[in-house]
């Protein structure tokens, strides 16, 4: 088990380093087409990080929205503009300051989070046990995760399904060949 945990940390470190490299590349590259392509690579690596962190559903969303639909939408937008990025009109000082400030606040915020896997966090002491005890009588679904997703959190799941449906429409539009009119 020890090697598995070390392996996870190693994979995460490598993937996050590659993500940082790709981000720097996206900032430096001036060709917007290359930026779209690199963003797709970013999404795929991010999805891998999510999977290693055991958030498979988030990874799925990241891959379908980030690498799939975002690429298509960005390409459609690119059709309406030029493919080369215009030289910046203002200096980057203020945006840089805002971004670094936000990042610092977020990192400061992580110090308030409970440690990973602690037993006495609100997540593990609150409603979780309650759901485990009640879900079968209330919903009749043996799988707790399914009962939460489809019953207790039904509207949220409806929203997610809408997102996936939209993605499906995008794929259909992409694969369809339109006839010329007239």
């Amino acid at each position: 088990m020890e090697t598995v945990i070390n392996m996870e940390a190693l994979i995460n470190m490598v993937l996050l380093t590659l993500l940082a490299l790709i981000t720097l590349g996206i900032i430096r590259v001036r060709n917007l087409f290359a930026v779209v392509v690199l963003t797709g690579a970013y999404s795929f690596l991010m999805a891998s990080v999510m999977i290693v962190l055991d958030a498979v559903d988030v990874a799925m969303t990241e891959a379908s929205v980030g690498a799939g639909i975002s690429t298509v939408l960005a390409l459609s937008a690119l059709y309406l503009t030029k493919t080369e990025e215009a030289p910046p009109r203002y200096t980057a000082a203020l945006p840089l300051f805002v971004v670094i400030g936000t990042g610092a606040v977020l990192i400061y915020g992580t110090y308030g989070l409970p440690h990973f896997g602690m037993a006495d966090t609100p997540m593990n002491t609150g409603v979780g046990a309650d759901y485990l005890a009640r879900n079968y009588q209330e919903t009749g679904v043996p799988n707790v995760v399914t009962s939460v997703l489809a019953s207790y959190r039904g509207f949220d799941t409806l929203g997610e399904t809408t997102v996936i449906f939209t993605a499906g429409i995008g794929v259909l539009l992409l694969l369809k060949r339109f006839r010329q009119e007239g």
Binding site: V36, V37, G40, A67, G68, T71, V72, L75, S76, L78, Y79, V171, L173, L174, L175, K176, F178, R179, Q180, E181
Partner: peptide, 18 residues
């Protein structure tokens, strides 16, 4: 799908074009 989209964009200059 992603690769197809990009290649189609290259070929026709647009997605879902006639």
């Amino acid at each position: 799908i992603g690769t197809l989209a990009v290649l189609k964009f290259f070929r026709y200059g647009a997605l879902g074009h006639a």
